[in-house]
Nucleic acid binder design. Structure first.
Length: 470
RNA sequence: GUUCCCAUCGUCUAGCGGUUAGGACGCGGCCCUCUCAAGGCUGAAACCGGGGUUCAAUUCCCCGUGGGAGCACCA
């Protein structure tokens, strides 16, 4: 790394699935540091596994990144396209005597590992071709190229979040650089690409910590500058076990579809493992300003959907009404079949939004609670509303109707009339209001009743109320 | 098995030798109140165990225990 140069960060997912929450967090931290330091944030698609990589997965990752608001600098780089360069480096290592040909067959290696397992020995390549003359191999036999790793001393990873992590070199074996079909392995490709891309900070999941020592050996064998490493603690499921599809290892789009805002996701993922004193609500701009690796936690964290909900509620409340309407409109149009809101529905939604957003934790809840605004006509009752509309309640509703009908149709006037009516009949306001709410919205819960009556208007309101009178 | 990492309320975390161990989510209570939220006040709730080092350990070191990750011609 050249001194004084701007940092170069990268996110390097393999396109074998969606961009899940763990990957998104890794990307976020890389992005935050790049933006914080005025450096670059690059995106590299590690598609060297031809069997498992798909164009759909590439698209999904790119879309996920965009939704998360994580923009990358320049075009994304495809690792597979660089195979020739990886091979070239392997050749150089071979020429330098830092790598060698290994003619061991897969069967032979499996057998070796099984023997090691039986003897409870560490599973490592035993270096059987390390010092053997290639002439001993059958002519024309396929071979892999292995790194001739240091066999004494130690390799130290100076980690930005974990501190110095030491590995005795005799616990590291001679890894494969080039497969017998001539294709490069991930270990080689990563190192070469990071070097060629000028990456100064390798920030990735802690599951790569062990790899770092091995990759360091390739780097030193080539005499290349050593990047700074930072291994981020992993995210576990709510039960503390590895994050699985069942509890949170979902594509980031799945979070969008559950009604979470991307700002929420950035804030939540940031706080999962990183902190700034007692701060909980951290805007993206603030995060960029504050971000550093010193405040990174070292232990794995668990997903907590309750906290995610709470944060999302906060961001929904602080998002402007028109943005939320746009968010909802887009959400509905993404459904299959797409749902298109009428202009009337959209106007009502916008008017009701200040009251609606106060009560929702997700965009989905926002939509559910606004459902009674989307169409005209008599409501079907949900369970709570049905339970509410007892014969007595219907009688109260019937008795209240003439009072409302005689009232000026504004929120304040309707409320005043209802209060007066309640007092006159010896009822609590709630006893008068609840039946009205149930009939008007079809639900037991809604935004403030009198505002909603005013919003729907005299005619529409009376149609709905009369349907359940009697 | 082996290598490596980690360890403060249930959860996310603050703490960087001396604190009534703080905040947030969640949970309980009270207030507000047309429902539900939001908001305000408030309560319960934690330093994994054992040894050191030190006048003093949640904090530093070692061991144990418990979790996690890696150990492929996958990435």
């Amino acid at each position: 790394m050249t001194e004084n140069a701007k940092p170069v960060l990268r996110f390097a997912p393999s396109p074998t699935g969606m961009l899940h929450i763990g990957g998104a967090r890794t990307a976020l931290f890389n992005w935050l540091y790049a933006r914080h330091s005025g450096g670059k944030f690059l995106l590299r698609i590690e598609d060297t596994d031809r069997e498992r990589s798909t164009p759909q997965a590439v698209a999904a990752i790119l879309n996920g990144m965009r939704w998360m608001g994580l923009d990358w600098d320049g075009d994304e780089i495809y690792q597979f396209a660089r195979a020739a360069r990886h091979r070239e480096v392997a050749e150089q290592l071979l020429a330098k005597g830092r790598a060698y040909r290994c003619y061991a067959t897969p069967e032979e290696l499996t057998e070796m590992r099984e023997a090691q397992k039986r003897e409870s020995k560490p599973l490592r390549y035993d270096g059987r071709w390390r010092n053997r003359d290639p002439k001993e191999a059958p002519p024309g036999a396929p071979f892999a190229v292995r790194l001739k790793a240091e066999d004494s001393g130690e390799t130290i990873v100076h980690d930005l979040v974990l501190g110095d992590v030491r590995f005795a070199n005799d616990t590291l074996d001679d890894m494969v650089l080039l497969r017998s079909d001539g294709t490069p392995t991930y270990m080689l490709a990563v190192v070469v690409d990071d070097h060629d891309m000028g990456v100064t900070h390798v920030i990735r999941g802690a599951d790569h910590l062990n790899n770092a020592a091995r990759q360091l050996q390739i780097i030193t064998a080539m005499g290349w500058p050593i990047p700074a490493y930072g291994h981020l603690p992993l995210i576990n499921g709510p039960d503390g076990a590895k994050l699985s599809k069942r509890h949170g290892a979902l594509a980031v789009e799945a979070y969008r579809d559950m009604g979470y805002l991307s700002e929420t996701m950035r804030n939540y993922l940031l706080r999962l493992g990183w902190s700034h004193g007692d701060e909980e609500i951290i805007s993206t701009a603030q995060a960029i300003e504050w971000f550093n690796f010193e405040s990174m936690g070292k232990s794995a964290a668990r997903m907590d959907f309750k906290k995610l909900d709470n944060l999302n509620g906060h961001y929904i409340r602080s998002t402007s009404d028109d943005v939320l309407v746009a968010e909802i409109t887009a959400f509905l149009e993404r459904q299959t079949p797409p749902r298109i809101l009428s202009d009337k529905a959209r106007r009502r939604l916008l008017t009701a939004m200040p009251a609606l957003k106060e009560r929702a934790k997700t965009v989905v809840e926002l939509i559910q609670s606004a459902e009674f605004l989307f169409t005209d006509g008599i409501r079907d009752l949900d369970e709570a509303a049905a339970k509410l509309l007892t014969p007595e309640a219907r009688a109260t509703l019937t008795a209240t109707l003439p009072v409302l009908e005689a009232t000026d149709w504004s929120g304040a006037a309707l409320e005043a009339a209802a209060r007066a009516h309640a007092e006159a009949t010896g009822l609590k306001l709630g006893q008068v209001a609840q039946p009205l709410r149930a009939a008007l919205t079809g639900k037991g819960i809604s935004p403030p009743l009198f505002e909603m009556l005013a919003l729907l208007g005299r005619e529409e309101s009376l149609v709905r109320l009369r349907a359940y009178a009697g």
